[in-house]
């Protein structure tokens, strides 16, 4: 995902859905959020890259690296903790759910687009959460960014 984008809040179907459902991922245990699949611990028992164990300096650079050198990361299971933002990209004019991470000076931001399994609910805007998924890089017209596919939100 290109970094340093200004937040552009646009209401979408997902936003509306979130308002109507009262799912707050932090408040409910993982099992209730995910509908048709097993909880995170069982779904992803080995995480290839656990970004929650990285220092902030590394975290930011690793995420950037995923964007610039996707070949090194395609297919890897990645666990990342950050803030939720429903990101609107001016270039492709689409919006995506993203997990945003900041660098050590807190003045630069980058993130990963993610796609939850099944009908799981997305977090609130600016909410902190952890998500695990498999990194894919479809590079389609619709979404030119790397996507964390089959993602699962955990509470830890």
């Amino acid at each position: 995902m290109p970094n340093n984008r200004v937040v552009n809040k646009t209401k979408t179907v997902t936003d509306v859905m979130e308002e109507q459902t009262t799912v707050a991922p932090e408040a409910t245990p993982a099992e209730e959020v995910i509908v048709d699949t097993a909880p995170a611990e069982m779904r992803y028992d080995t995480v290839d890259i656990d970004l929650t164990q990285s220092s902030e300096t590394m975290l930011y650079s690793e995420v950037i690296d995923m964007g610039t050198s996707p070949d090194n990361y395609v297919g890897k299971i990645i666990k990342v903790h950050g803030q939720y933002m429903f990101f609107h990209d001016e270039m492709s004019e689409n919006s995506y759910p993203t997990v945003v991470v900041l660098d050590a000076t807190k003045c630069c931001a980058t993130g990963l687009v993610f796609e939850l399994e099944g009908d799981a609910g997305y977090p609130q805007e600016d909410q902190e959460f952890t998500v695990t998924g498999a990194l894919d890089y479809p590079s389609s017209e619709d979404c030119p960014f790397p996507i964390l596919k089959n993602a699962v939100i955990t509470t830890e």
Partner: peptide, 18 residues
């Protein structure tokens, strides 16, 4: 889009070396 971030990066380096 992110004036403050760009300027900050240039002035303090941020993580640009990484």
């Amino acid at each position: 889009p992110n004036l403050a971030g760009d300027v900050c990066t240039t002035l303090f380096g941020s993580t640009s070396i990484l």
